Computed example of a mutant assay.
Amino acid sequence: MSEEWFQFQERIKDHFLSLGAEARTNARIQGVRTCHDIDVYVQTRYLGENLVWLIEAKFWKAKVKKNQVLALRAIVEDIGADRGFIVSMAGFQKGAIEAANKTNIKLKTFDELLSDTREFAESEILRAYRERVNLLEDRYWSHSKRTRIEYGLRHDIIDTVFTFTGQELLTTARSAIMAAEDRDYPIDLQMVLTERKGEATADSFQQLCNWLNLNLNHLDERLLNAEWRMHENGDYRPNTGRTRARDSYITEFMAKAMMGKLEEK
């Protein structure tokens, strides 16, 4: 093993670690038929789904050939991995590209691997945030307007200062997620609420995640405290139905309208 190849593997491993996955180099993995030596072995979990990726690091001067692709396809099948990557410094021959076409083997340069896998990870994280917003919204609207006002989940119509309203927080969170999906940074997170968390803009994905964590946790805490007081006072009478998958959420409609994403009829 050359020092350059060793460092190449380690850079790939460190990239996946930075995405929150488990990764190790020079792994020996038992397949159905035999053991295999894998340059970089990646395990992660997104939305309850376990994923295993195998990465072959080709720090070669020559382009990767078809037989290397076929060999990795066989290993991926024997181990039962979800996807295999060949990362090449020199590129790929035409036969290698054809052999990988429409399979779970992906041929990447190092820069392409960084970009594509980061986009995949970010899209899955955003999908998880969207589902959390869905759950919080169903919970928020399950209480009547009178109850939300009485227990501090929204302002009264006669209030001149908007201390807090879950509707605006959820709308802002949805519009921020939509902007992040389009990679439209910086993202405006301004709200009229006097009780808000975090910065007014997000210049990066990490900053957006920090904002979403702060504000969704804040809403979750307010809901929990309000619902506990409702229970103590005999006012806990929520509508426990969930929004159907084919229906739009109220704040989703509002966020799309704010961003000009409503489809013309």
Rank of each mutant, 00 (worst) to 15 (best):
R33P: 03
R229W: 08
A57R: 03
D138R: 01
C35A: 12
L153K: 05
M178P: 04
R154T: 13
K261D: 12
C209R: 13
A226W: 05
L17P: 01
D116G: 03
R33S: 13
D111M: 10
L224E: 13
W228R: 12
R222K: 15
L208K: 07
I12S: 03
L114D: 12
N50C: 01
A173V: 12
V42L: 01
K66V: 11
A21H: 09
R83S: 06
K106M: 12
A128W: 02
S18D: 07
R242M: 08
I125C: 08
Y151S: 05
W53P: 01
A57V: 10
Y185P: 01
G20A: 07
E119I: 12
F92L: 02
S204R: 01
Y46L: 03
D247S: 15
Q7K: 15
Q190I: 10
S115Q: 15
Q68L: 09
A23E: 02
E77L: 14
R222Y: 00
T172D: 02
V192S: 10
L216E: 00
M259K: 15
E150M: 10
E98R: 15
V32Y: 06
R222C: 00
T171L: 09
T109N: 04
N210L: 05
I29Q: 07
R237P: 02
L72P: 06
T201I: 02
L212E: 00
N101E: 15
P238Y: 06
L208A: 00
E252H: 13
R28E: 13
E10F: 04
A200H: 11
L135C: 01
M191T: 14
E227Y: 09
T172E: 11
A74D: 15
C209Y: 04
R45Y: 02
R222V: 02
V133W: 00
R242C: 08
Y129D: 02
V87C: 09
V40Y: 01
T163F: 12
T34I: 02
G260Y: 08
R11Q: 12
D111G: 08
E22W: 07
N104E: 03
E122T: 04
T117E: 06
M254P: 06
I158D: 14
F59K: 07
K265S: 13
G80H: 09
L54F: 02
E4W: 14
K256T: 11
